[in-house]
Simulated assay, not measured.
Amino acid sequence: MAVHDLLTSPLGPWGTGIDRQRGRGREVSKTVAFLAECQGSATIEVQRAAVSPDAHIVLAGRQSFNKLGDLLARSGVRLEAGDRVVVYDLTCIALSTATLIRLIKRLLRNGIIFEIVSAGIVINPAPDDKLHALVTALDDHHRYLHGLKTHPETASRGRKRLLAPDDLPEIKSKLERPGATATDVAQALGVSRSTLFNFLERYDPSRSTRRKKLEERGATGLGKSGHLA
């Protein structure tokens, strides 16, 4: 049997993975320990010694943590609400942080406890559990950033306009003050110089007219001098 196919439990390597209280026949929660040795991680022996002797041991071999369900299914074991998944340390899981957070969130959503033995961290699926809330927030944040990258057009959806046409009189008044500069006015408005200039070009007819006249004068002057021949 290949090491990544091996699953042992108190009921034997091919048991159902469900402990039953003696004489009552009632199912109780079980603990599944995912053991995998990666570069820089603790050895399998160290990991095994740190988990409960009653835990169902999954020796993952080359299989990653996201294959835990498949490894359990091969032996007829299924995780259920109230169960606990244990790893010795996160260095034993060769997955990206975002993927790992998503998998932990999925376990919690299904009512399964997640434990990191070496750090003494236990994340409960209860809605009021602070660590559960943190995992959810981190996953939501990753999805938000991923959404901005894949759909940048939604980034500005719902954003208030920085400058409105009604602001034009106030902006012109600021610019006409003695010593005023476009940079100073833009900073006071909380926008960039380019945003301010684009706004004036769009909403200030007098500015647009002056610019066109200057362009026409420049073109006429160049034409007379023969530079555009």
Rank of each mutant, 00 (worst) to 15 (best):
Ala133Glu: 10
Arg102Lys: 08
Leu59Glu: 04
Ile57Arg: 03
Tyr144Trp: 15
Gly120Phe: 06
Cys38Phe: 06
Asn124Lys: 13
Ile123Gln: 00
His141Ser: 10
His56Leu: 14
Ile44Glu: 10
Asp128Lys: 15
Ala60His: 03
Ile57Ala: 01
His146Trp: 08
Leu90Val: 14
Gly111His: 04
Ala155His: 13
Cys38Gly: 09
Arg84Asp: 02
Gly111Gln: 04
Leu79His: 02
Thr99Asp: 05
Gly40Leu: 06
Cys38Tyr: 05
Leu35Gly: 02
Ala137Arg: 04
Ala36Asp: 09
Arg62Val: 15
Thr97Phe: 08
Asp140Met: 11
His146Phe: 07
Arg106Ile: 07
Pro125Cys: 04
His56Val: 13
Leu71Trp: 05
Arg143Thr: 02
Gln47Ala: 07
Gly76Phe: 02
Ala49Tyr: 01
Lys105Met: 14
Ala155Asn: 13
Leu95Gln: 07
Phe34Tyr: 08
Glu37Phe: 05
Val86Ser: 01
Ala50Thr: 09
Thr154Gly: 09
Gly111Leu: 05
Ala119Arg: 12
Ala73Ile: 02
His56Gln: 15
Leu131Cys: 01
Ser64Val: 13
Asp140Pro: 04
Leu108Gln: 00
Leu103Val: 10
Ile121Leu: 08
Arg84Tyr: 03
Lys67Cys: 13
Ala55Gln: 04
Asp54Tyr: 03
Ala60Val: 10
Thr43Leu: 01
Leu59Trp: 04
Glu80Ala: 14
Arg48Cys: 04
Ser118Gln: 05
Lys67Ile: 11
Val117Pro: 00
His56Thr: 15
Ala42Ser: 09
Phe65His: 00
Thr136Leu: 10
Glu45Pro: 03
Ala50His: 06
Asn124Cys: 14
Val86Glu: 02
Thr97Val: 10
Gly40Val: 08
Leu108Cys: 02
Cys92Val: 06
Leu145Phe: 11
Lys130Tyr: 14
Ile57Thr: 01
Arg157Lys: 04
Thr136Trp: 06
Val77Trp: 07
Leu90Glu: 11
Thr43Ala: 01
Gly61Tyr: 07
Phe114Ser: 00
Thr97Ala: 09
Arg62Thr: 15
Ala155Pro: 12
Thr91Pro: 07
Gly61Trp: 08
Phe34Ile: 08
Ser52Phe: 11
Leu138Val: 07
Cys92Met: 05
Thr91Tyr: 11
Asp70Cys: 10
Ala49Trp: 01
Arg48Ser: 04
Thr97Glu: 07
Ala73Gly: 04
Leu138Cys: 04
Arg106Leu: 09
Arg78Trp: 03
Leu100Asp: 01
Ala55Lys: 03
Lys105Val: 15
Arg106Lys: 11
Pro53Val: 05
Pro127Val: 10
Asn66Ala: 07
